[in-house]
């Protein structure tokens, strides 16, 4: 608070200085042309948006802890195959005595999370699946955010585009995702990139609409009117006035898109258009496990993928909220 006040006083001083001291009286009341340098000078402060955001975020201990967890999970999915005593997720483990597969073996010291119905190691499958699902989630979130923000900002700010984009949204939002999914799976082979493409194909427009609505709400706020009156360029208004205001909401949405994309993968698997089981994913593991829910002896096959999925989801939810709180400039004071 004190810091802020100091900053404000400094700014006031500099303005006073420039207007009052350096100008003769006769010029003080004449129209001044637009001067880029002057604008930069008046806009200067040593306040750094991102530093403050990070500072606020680090204050939230739970969020920091969960960020660490997500990071560790992500890291572990990559290093897990290189650890000692790991079993290839695709390998069918045979009982050396009978030569037949170790089917539905409960967790023990060889198979840490047990085996599935054909004798594959669930521990290895779990991490391989987590890697796939996180990759899908993060890719979708990034692509959606990038396309969504660009389109959304233009949509909200440039009125000429409003009609066109609203129309595009109405059309895209109302073409059933299933038709798109099925057509995509006809054209392309079922696989990770097909799923990412299918999820992004319609997802970005949701993000764009969200941004557009936020922008419409704040577009005509007084400080933006003021900026416009001062002749600030559109891209600059977007970059300096709007985006920081939106960061909090964008981050929250992105953080939620990751688990949502993983969830969609579960849904797509459910309707039979998901990844082939040869590519382990949380969706595949949960879908297989779901059918075993009523069999107490086999339930362990559902529990572990669900736990990982829950941890990932919860983490992103909390991180997203914490970051969005931290990113709100109002909270920086």
């Amino acid at each position: 608070m004190a810091l802020y006040r100091k900053k404000a006083e400094k700014l006031q001083d500099s303005i006073n200085e420039s207007i009052l001291k350096r100008m003769p009286d006769s010029e003080a009341f004449s129209f001044a042309g637009f001067d880029e340098q002057e604008v930069e000078r008046s806009g200067y402060s040593n306040y750094s948006y991102w530093r403050s955001t990070l500072h606020m975020f680090l204050k939230n201990k739970v969020a920091v802890f969960l960020t660490l967890i997500v990071f560790l999970i992500l890291l572990f999915t990559f290093i897990q195959p290189y650890l000692p005593n790991q079993i290839d997720p695709f390998l069918v483990n045979n009982d050396p005595k009978t030569g037949l597969p170790f089917r539905n073996v409960k967790p023990n010291d060889v198979f840490w999370l047990g085996t599935n119905s054909i004798g594959q190691d669930l521990w290895a499958n779990l991490w391989s699946g987590t890697r796939t699902s996180l990759f899908i989630g993060i890719s979708v979130a990034c692509i959606e955010a990038f396309v969504g923000i660009v389109v959304g900002v233009l949509w909200g700010y440039v009125r000429k585009l409003d009609f066109l984009l609203t129309e595009l949204y109405n059309v895209m939002d109302n073409i059933p995702t299933t038709i798109v999914l099925i057509l995509v799976s006809y054209i392309l082979k079922p696989g990770i990139y097909t799923i990412i493409l299918a999820l992004c194909l319609q997802g970005w427009i949701g993000m764009a609409l969200f941004i557009r609505n936020q922008i419409i709400i704040i577009r005509d706020r007084e400080y933006n009117l003021a900026s416009r009156c001062l002749g600030t360029r559109t891209y600059k208004i977007i970059q300096k006035n709007l985006i920081p205001y939106l960061i909090s909401v964008i981050m929250l949405r992105m953080a939620l898109t990751i688990p949502a994309a993983i969830g969609s993968e579960v849904f797509i698997t459910y309707i039979g258009l998901g990844l082939p089981a040869t590519i382990p994913s949380l969706g595949n593991l949960i879908n297989v496990g779901r059918q075993l829910m009523m069999s107490p002896d086999l339930r362990y096959q559902l529990i572990y993928p669900t736990i990982i999925l829950s941890i990932v989801t919860v983490s992103f939810y909390v991180i997203g909220n914490a970051f969005s709180d931290a990113a709100d400039p109002k909270n920086h004071i």
């Binding site: 939620l256 688990p259 969830g263 579960v266 849904f267 459910y270 949960i286 879908n287 779901r290 829910m293 009523m294 559902l302 669900t306 999925l309 829950s310 941890i311 989801t313 919860v314 939810y317 909390v318």
Partner: peptide, 19 residues
């Protein structure tokens, strides 16, 4: 509550609730 609903896949908790 929100975290739980978000975290557990609907496909799983629906079935659980039903059973």
């Amino acid at each position: 509550f929100i975290v739980f609903i978000q975290a557990v896949p609907a496909a799983v908790y629906y079935l659980f609730l039903q059973l």
